[in-house]
Amino acid sequence: MQLWLDAVFVLIMLTNLSLLAASRMRLIIRAAAIQGVLLGLLPLLFSLEGSLAANLGFSAFVLGIKGLGFPWLLTRTCRRVRITPEIEPYIGYNFSVILGIVGLLVSLWLEHRLDLPVRVSGLSVSAAFMTIFSGFLLVVSRKKAVTQVIGYLAAENGIFLFGLSLAPHGPMWLELCVLLDIFVAVFVMGIAIHNIGREFDSVDIGAVDSLKD
């Protein structure tokens, strides 16, 4: 089981890097979807306390929202608003990936320093921190509103992972609440971007500056 867990965490880390390296809207949404699917697999692998049915249900719920729901919404938004497929970063892709690696190393150091009472594979906390870092890096370093949303999603994935690895069964309801919040947020975002896109020509957040006077 440990081997599989390790493999999933490594894949999560790789999806983080591919989020940072993606140069096309299609690729970044796909990376986010894969990350969602991987997160959905985790509750099964953790061999949680509680009934199999509950675990299956939780897993299916996470998989459905993070792996299918969000990506579908984002794709739909992109298509509706006719966003250009390029991502337009402030920080180049190479540097983003290198910063992602630095984030990973910092996460490893944090895990080492915090010495948390982790119940599962030692990589989980690092993976969680790294996911949070990558998410915020996306938020600050990309121009488009949709990529910012994906950044927030990734950060939330990290928090989810962190909660899961610290207390695999306890605050599941909390997670669900957060998930619901995010769901609403993404939904609102979809509508908002759609409307902004209809009113204005672009959804480039750099252009929002021109509204400030």
């Binding site: 490594v10 390296a21 190393l105 490893l108 895990e111």
Partner: peptide, 17 residues
Amino acid sequence: LTAAGAFAALALAILGR
């Protein structure tokens, strides 16, 4: 090439923890 470096660094990270 950065990706290759990232893979190697990740391998080290998993091994070294």
